[in-house]
Design a protein around this nucleic acid. Sequence first.
DNA 1: ACGCCATACCAACATATGTAGATTTAAGAG
DNA 2: CTCTTAAATCTACATATGTTGGTATGGCGT
Lengths: 100, 100
Amino acid sequence: MVRKRQPSKQMYRLLEALSEARGEWRHGYDLMKVTGLLSGTLYPLLMRMTEQGLVEAEWREPAQPGRPARHAYRLTSAGAALARDLAGSAPGQPFKGALA
Amino acid sequence: MVRKRQPSKQMYRLLEALSEARGEWRHGYDLMKVTGLLSGTLYPLLMRMTEQGLVEAEWREPAQPGRPARHAYRLTSAGAALARDLAGSAPGQPFKGALA
DNA sequence: ACGCCATACCAACATATGTAGATTTAAGAG
DNA sequence: CTCTTAAATCTACATATGTTGGTATGGCGT
């Protein structure tokens, strides 16, 4: 059986950061600095959220040679809806609506 | 006035590593590990040697997205000649022929 | 309330290249 | 030999993304 979790503090912070500029593409590295999440937390989280359809991702060419290509992330409408719902409740408090 | 230096220990080690597989392209990261030189020593050194015409460099596309493109380096004939000459003398000992 | 255990998180490492600034080395002058 | 000083080296940092392996969290059944 698949277990459903409440959004964690980390996911909450990420949704918040992605919501700030709706529709804008953000880079993982920026999100690390803005949210304070470490790469080992952020990247798996972004990948899970992408799988769940909350976030969409695409590759961007590096600005300069020698630098890695960057992944750009953006909330989907489902992700934006979740962020909106969550905005009402405090991070620690379970939000019952999210379980529906 | 432009000063000419004897090849340093670091340059000696790099020439040695590049000579091992003549004509093969090597990556900076590999050379770091093989020679034990740190990035802050190796990359400026490779750049100087490229300027001096001892080494030729070209960019290679990354094997996987998310990884940086890699620089590939190879000895020029001038570089190979210097390496051959240096092979006779010990690293610390100045090699007079190199000054000609 | 308690433990199971799937999930999520975090520290460390790995891939690659490069720059900034302080220190060290050594060539040429005296 | 010693001084000056340009060139080379080294330490630390910065860019970016991602994996590995161990620990912590938290839903669910009893």
